[in-house]
Amino acid sequence: MTEFLAYAVERYTYWAYVALMLIGFYAMIAHGNLLKKLIGMNIFQTAIILFFLSISAKRGATLPIIPPEAGELVVAPPHFMNPLPHALMLTAIVVMVGTLGVALAVLIKIHRTYRTFEEDVILRQT
């Protein structure tokens, strides 16, 4: 039991990502309000960012910037965080912003057409 607890505590960011993902997923499924569904979708996406950033983190590591005075010094990977997941997530965030923007635009049009965000009310009107 204590072993498992130590294991769980050591990887707490991964548990946080799973929890966030499930919260987002639950909101997308359970809420009847389209805006809340969209918020759920955004939480879901954010969880993935957290997952990728957890990959890159290392205990006691610093930013992956090699100072110019380091010269020809050998760079030891354990001393630096992995920059690649950060770079990937910058791109993924841009993609997510695009999705969110289109979704919000669609929601605005839905609200103009039906005057509500409640899914059951809208489905009754169509």
């Binding site: 969209l38 979708m41 669609v106 049009k109 809208i122």
Partner: peptide, 21 residues
């Protein structure tokens, strides 16, 4: 898809949610 307006909007929204998942 959403450019259709009307019922296409709900279809597009559902498409966005599922496509994003």
């Amino acid at each position: 898809v959403a450019s259709g307006g009307g019922r296409a909007l709900m279809a597009a929204f559902r498409y966005i949610l599922l496509g994003t998942v």
